[in-house]
Design a protein around this nucleic acid. Structure first.
Lengths: 251, 251
DNA sequence: TAGATTGTTAATCGATTAACAATC
DNA sequence: TAGATTGTTAATCGATTAACAATC
């Protein structure tokens, strides 16, 4: 059982059909795509690696390295053709068709995700909603009716769904994942704060909102610990910020 | 201007007060913490690296390496004391006090985040809501009133807020970030699909829901491209899954 | 003591980055 | 041609992993 795909992105073993892409590159391509769409709307036909890198928040060496994995789509001395690069990245990401997505769990967070416009505008169609709560089944959200989760196999097949979003409480998520996999889903975006176990060949990505804040909390904690220490640059200045932590500080 | 903290986690330059933690370790500590709370609830007093690693979805070598950065809190031949390790991780993450968080943008997604129970149960208190839409100001969500964003400085100071969540449309996010920073916020969790530019010393983490699906889409695309290719293991078997992509396949 | 399990070492691997030759 | 910018190289850095000595 694998819990998360890692290392090089899957491709055929001889490398003839598709080049393998480093996972770090795959994770950045969507950001480049978003930046390119912005540039296109602003009227740019062409962009340099420096310009695109700035728009995507990375350095230009990394951007060029990433794009070099896709093949050569830039022109030396000129830059990249915006429309061409958009098409190429959309092709690599498999976004040339709109993908149908199932969403399981229409509570607080799931309800918001069902109405999230960003899914629709960036390559996806929420094709079906599911919940286990009898009180919610039949409810309409954004033009979609909430199905009983028992109907997963039927609806997943009918809508040709291969990607699902789990927005249930943590205690229900593993069971939902099992049922999704049994119904034929092969990619899962998990918002429940728990680890999912899935068979090889199924990809899981996890988004844990509290974990994001906890990582920020760590850095806040570090920053406040620096409050009264002498500057490491040796210029004699002190960083004085009020510490909210009330923690013992080295002096 | 920095857009994202990277590399080793910040600490004092001489390393005397806090050990520096690798960023990859920092990002996993919250997952260990969640797993430990589960174990504690299930009645475990002690857990081995093997057991905790399984619960957190990592391998045990990585877990031990991560924990070794905190100091030595395990007992050879026995394992880790669950309560002690919880306390240690919460201390390192700065979760010994409940941190006040501001949320800006109470539209579709922001409204759900304002009611997200996981923030409250895992170390945070949504202390204030803000929006720019006059139609939403004064609205009550989960017992909190939505303030005019013009009141940011005042409320951030009064509530001692250092962390904020941006859940506005992308076109408003940079301006909101600027105002948050001006008001004294030093950590931002950004749900808007855009790059934020902030001064050094301010940490930004970004969650882009569509990007998560696009990364899964890439892997779906790869999986369907494998459909009719001979097995790389050379056992003569074929991976036959119906391809939904309708894409030209090498044969 | 014997068995179990940690904490650390060292090898490996993947990602980042600066520099620059190639070339438009 | 001269200037600009890509694509690639090679060095560096950080993260992962297996193995095992230390030790409970």
């Amino acid at each position: 059982m694998s819990q998360q795909r890692n290392g090089q992105a899957a491709g055929v073993s001889d490398g003839a059909v598709f080049p393998d892409l480093p996972e770090a590159t795959v994770a950045r391509l969507p950001e480049y795509l978003r930046a390119l769409h912005n540039l296109a709307e602003t009227g740019f036909d062409t962009v340099s690696s420096e310009g695109l890198a700035a728009a995507a928040g990375v350095n230009s060496a990394k951007l060029r390295k990433d794009l070099s994995h896709l093949g050569s789509y830039g022109t030396r001395g000129v830059g990249y053709d915006v429309a061409l690069l958009i098409a190429q990245i959309e092709h690599v990401l498999g976004l040339t068709q709109r993908r149908a997505v199932a969403l399981v769990g229409v509570g607080n967070l799931g309800h918001a995700l069902a109405g999230y416009a960003g899914f629709s505008s960036r390559g996806f169609r929420i094709a079906a909603l599911f919940d286990a709560d009898p009180g919610r089944i039949g409810e309409r959200i954004n033009g979609l009716v909430v199905h009983d989760i028992a109907r997963l196999p039927e609806v997943v097949a009918a809508e040709a769904i291969s990607i699902a979003v789990i927005a249930t409480p943590a205690h229900a998520a593993q069971s939902v994942a099992d049922r999704l996999v049994a119904a034929g889903v092969t990619s899962i975006l998990n918002f429940a704060p728990c680890v999912l176990s899935v068979p090889d060949g199924v990809d899981v990505r996890k988004v844990d909102l509290a974990i994001e804040l906890q990582i920020l909390s760590f850095h806040e904690h570090r920053k406040s610990a620096l409050t009264t220490l002498p500057s490491p640059t040796g210029d004699g200045s002190m960083k004085i910020r009020p510490t909210l932590d009330g923690e013992a500080l080295a002096t």
